[in-house]
Design a protein around this nucleic acid. Structure first.
Lengths: 200, 200, 200, 200
DNA sequence: TAATAACCGAGACGGTACGTCAAGTCTTCGG
DNA sequence: CCGAAGACTTGACGTACCGTCTCGGTTATTA
């Protein structure tokens, strides 16, 4: 998270932050995006909807971008894929997890808003890259595991292959403006497996 | 284009629009984005830089989003790939053309701005989808040609494969915040060719 | 009038001006003021309502102020009071003529607009003063006639007295926002007659 | 005043308005009018000159008209004339007070702007009438006092006489475009005193 | 128990951009 | 040359949003 206090640390003096605020704000952002698009995500609108004051928000997220990123992350469980002994199966698990996140209502607009927000400032770009990294890292791990195991071609360019896996779902959601479905995931698994599978 | 008059049509009464304005404005947008990022693309700034008045701009593009979309489109030549007798070669040609467009300075910011702009209004979405269609249509054609020719698996899901081709370059540019290079294109050609190549 | 061609003069080459335009425009101004206030008197609105083009208007009245003054004048017949042998009677005639003009619907707004228009530019001020002069000149004449005749105090300051006569009707209309009536005129005649009547 | 908070009242929650803003803005309006005419009274210009933001101005005065009216009012001290035992003397005092206000530089343009502003909106008219009321009320009072005392004709129409007193100074300033002087006031005192003095 | 420190809602603040509107000019076509 | 139609520049309008700050008050930890 961005700008959040550590939990276990010894709390300093003064009134502690109300837990209520953080949750209410993130929920308000997601709801507003879902119902009315990111155009409706105004700091004032979020504050009003969450029943919270603006300073309380800015204490937690120093800019709007930070808030939107946090809201997007709150929809994306951190994924950890165990070794299933099979590249295809692990790949299917990764993509299905992403699919589920993308199928939540408003995800498309939230992510598009995220991209737009990152584009507006040079400042927000680092945080956005970090966000992307989180999306791709698990894919990289299963590719490497597959190479070690032998069901992925050992000559594969891992970074390129990772991009190949991560991009299509997002492109369908944002570029083609269409919510991806399970069939699409299944097709992708097949295509990617053939692309990086061991040669002949 | 958005809101532009037909060319050959008989002109109505009144003073005709000055061609100069349209070109100067689109150029100004692209230049501003390139030099200072979309944050600098203010309607006033564009007007000032193009030596044009704001009302003249709003007559052509009713909102800022429309203007940004039009500017992005003005950077994208319509691509037509001839039959080269080989799927790999045609695929390389398509991706290289896209690569060149993306390597133009400021393309990343322009496209990110485009996504953000489209996300802000329900209105802009149709135009954005149209923009995506232009990116993907040629790819679809060469896939179909390949299937007819026999160097693409006849069972391939064409739409899914199209997405697989179009997405990674864009993801690298926008998501990973990195300008793609020729090596990446080469790797992609190889991966995609193996993914959709004839089985066995 | 301002900026109008002489009538009898030898006309130059080219299409002559249509008489229709002048009348239609002045009527449109008065109607718009009456119905919606001077806020609605836009050059475009007037042109549209009169079924006339803007250049045609600007050929006749070089600025908006000129047009408004012309419209105001079109409501104010030039007054000429004959010698009635009695100051009170002549004064009553002058004030009644003004009363009738002021009672026309929209007169208050037209005059207030006139003042506002004159205030906006140093340029319009001369024309406005000329307009005021036309209002006051007849009053000055009957005062002088009364002094000669003997029913006005020969020591009267004519300019001050003229102001005393001209001002109250206008003040009631504009300042007190109330349409003056015949009783008010009668009272004014009495008050003014006592103010400037022969002493002793 | 227009839209201003009560003084003694318990203040509501939230950051209180800065007193500085109100004063600085009114001063800026008066200065701009004085130096360059009401044509120069732009909301942006006022804001810039007062060192204040536009929204801060619009929070206090919802339209430009309201601001101009408020600025005009800020130049008009509330007048209270004591019983001097003589109608002429009290009348002279009232008119001299008005004269001084009108002689302040820029008063003519400020008042003309005020009339124009009030004319543009139905909304502003109430406030303008209130402004006029303030000008005339003290005159009404001294007339009534004079009637009680006996140096004013008991049959005088008080409202008409009030108008007779208030109007000429303003007409000279606005209509005749001339700053009134002490001699004019003296002449008016004499004329009005004869108009309403006891008969016979 | 008192002081202190950080929190809370409410809402005003400066700044900046938005999209609109009006005035007055200019350009095309046709009469 | 006049007319209608409509685009053009200039410049102001009133609004919206961002991120900050100032209030009066509350809630915890420390002295």
């Amino acid at each position: 998270m961005v700008g959040m206090q550590q939990d276990g640390a010894a709390r300093g003096p003064g009134r502690p932050r109300e837990e209520r605020v953080t949750g209410a704000v993130l929920t308000a952002v997601v709801d507003l995006v879902t119902e009315q698009g990111i155009g409706a995500v105004t700091m004032d609108a979020v504050a009003s909807r969450a029943g919270v004051s603006k300073p309380a928000m800015y204490r937690r997220w120093p800019t709007k971008q930070d808030l939107i990123i946090a809201a997007a992350e709150s929809r994306l469980g951190v994924l950890s894929v165990p070794d299933l002994g099979d590249f295809r199966a692990e790949l299917r698990l990764v993509l299905t997890a992403r699919l589920e996140a993308y199928r939540l209502p408003g995800s498309d607009r939230l992510i598009a808003g995220l991209i737009g927000a990152a584009a507006e400032t040079g400042a927000g770009r680092g945080q956005y890259a970090e966000y992307t990294e989180r999306i791709t890292s698990e894919t990289r791990r299963i590719l490497e595991r597959g190479m070690a195991r032998g069901d992925v071609d050992p000559d594969t360019d891992v970074r390129a292959a990772t991009t190949l896996v991560a991009a299509p779902l997002l492109f369908r959601l944002i570029g083609e403006q269409e919510t991806p479905d399970a069939r699409f995931v299944e097709t992708l698994v097949e295509l990617v497996a053939r692309a990086v599978g061991p040669t002949g």
